[in-house]
């Protein structure tokens, strides 16, 4: 059973979003997604300052045998990326909701969060995929 955090919002493409007090949000991939990928060997991240629309390609996570695009779950401007992933992509496997975050984005519109899945909805999606 994969770990789904109640306080987060999720995209159907398995990214999670955590809103901070300053109007920015952290984005990562879910525990389910990291587990499905297997050991990550490389993470390609967007550039700081880049403006993204919802579902724009924001990066790529690679394992030995697969590569998967990361899509922006919300629109906004990239304000930070997790530079530690350059040398230690395994952080995404070890701590997908913490040290394994991918990037931080300044939201254009907080209302977009409502379009994303709640933890319960995401659980339902995962159950139906099995």
């Amino acid at each position: 059973m994969s770990d789904i955090r109640a306080e987060l919002r999720y995209a159907t493409s398995h990214e999670w979003v955590r809103l901070e007090d300053d109007g920015t949000a952290y984005v990562g991939i879910s525990d389910h997604a990291q587990d499905a990928m297997g050991d990550l060997v490389y993470v390609e991240l967007p550039e700081v300052g880049q403006a993204l629309e919802v579902t724009d390609e924001a990066g790529v996570v690679e394992s030995v045998k697969a590569a998967s695009d990361i899509y922006a779950p919300v629109s906004g401007e990239i304000v930070a990326i997790n530079e530690a992933l350059e040398d230690t992509p395994e952080l995404v496997n070890q701590d997908p909701y913490g040290d394994g975050w991918l990037f931080r984005i300044r939201l254009n519109d907080k209302a977009e969060l409502e379009q994303l899945l709640s933890a319960d909805d995401y659980r339902t999606q995962l159950d139906s995929e099995d």
Binding site: V41, Y42, V60, E62, S63, V64, K65, A66, A67, D69
Partner: peptide
């Protein structure tokens, strides 16, 4: 570095 290659990355 096989994730660059067509058998994994296909159209990308």
């Amino acid at each position: 570095l096989q994730a660059r290659e067509q058998h994994i990355r296909r159209s990308k």
